[in-house]
Design a protein around this nucleic acid. Sequence first.
DNA 1: CTCGCATGAGACATATCTGTATCGCCTGAT
DNA 2: ATCAGGCGATACAGATATGTCTCATGCGAG
Lengths: 182, 182
Amino acid sequence: MRDTSVSSKVSILNAAFDVLGQNPGASLSDVARAAGVGRATLHRHFAGRDDLMVALTLQAAEELDAAVDTAVAGCTTYTDGLRVALRAMLPLASRHMFLATDAAQTDPRVKEAYATQTRALTRDIEAARAEGTFAADIPTTWIVETYENLIYAGWAMVVAGEATPNQAADLAWRTFTQGLKP
Amino acid sequence: MRDTSVSSKVSILNAAFDVLGQNPGASLSDVARAAGVGRATLHRHFAGRDDLMVALTLQAAEELDAAVDTAVAGCTTYTDGLRVALRAMLPLASRHMFLATDAAQTDPRVKEAYATQTRALTRDIEAARAEGTFAADIPTTWIVETYENLIYAGWAMVVAGEATPNQAADLAWRTFTQGLKP
DNA sequence: CTCGCATGAGACATATCTGTATCGCCTGAT
DNA sequence: ATCAGGCGATACAGATATGTCTCATGCGAG
């Protein structure tokens, strides 16, 4: 078998991340054109829009897992793990948004991937809390919410050209722990 | 003139905030049904989807302005103004999102409303910075980004039933200024 | 060189959305 | 009571998206 099939499938997924990320209502024709493949080829690899959305979401989850796992490999504390995970996740923020999208949320695999992701983050935050990183009277759910939204904020800075990914990650982590006061 | 016309127009706008806020790709039939009016009536009040989006965005901007203006009336410092403005904006977060949507961004009135909103927030943050509220080495653009994202985070807490609007606003403001550390 | 297979282009049918027009009904004003 | 105007329901046409199928092409494996 030629390897063009896997190649075009990857092209479609990458183009779909771009096109559907910027405009979730874009047509599959737009996605196929952006991928440089025929519309029929897209339908050969994905049954339809829903199938494509599920594939995108699962790949986003996979990429996030891989990036975070690699990044936190050398960390000795959970707090430091959160710091480097934020740095690793920030450039993938636009893909991470697919996880939170309701679109493919009905698929059981997607639901499981999202739940696993949230559960892992919650667990690490609880562990970091035990290390004394967070105030005792702040709910864990708020910490999770803050963590994710600061990642988006950082990525917005990068997209706006106001910061490099690492600068944005440092700003986000500093704000996460200390806030903006002098 | 009977007042039913303004009534149904308001119904449509409110339903559109809900329906299109939750699913931007929803059809105008869905909006009309949620508003409890016929599809034809929707077209009588709004020329089409674009027109409706513009109306939603302008009303969101207007509501935000009014809420913030009322809230900050008695504030003596810009820093305190930011604090109470956050509290006032948080319950309107789902409508504020329409301002950031690219959908109606081509309309000049929408562009102006969005630019005015951002400019006012930037100005107030600069003024609060002069009051010593923010560290000198943090860019104003990042402060703006953080402010808006913490509002969304707070609203997410409210939607999830994890906090009341005021509790969420307090958490957001505390995180904004001091971060999450003990 | 020849064959297999994925692909691109395009035809085709179907479904949904959209915008417009029409008609009868009902409500509230006079 | 009468009347004007807003409304719901419905029909209709055009546009777009979607899913399926066919056919010729080109590239690589054997």
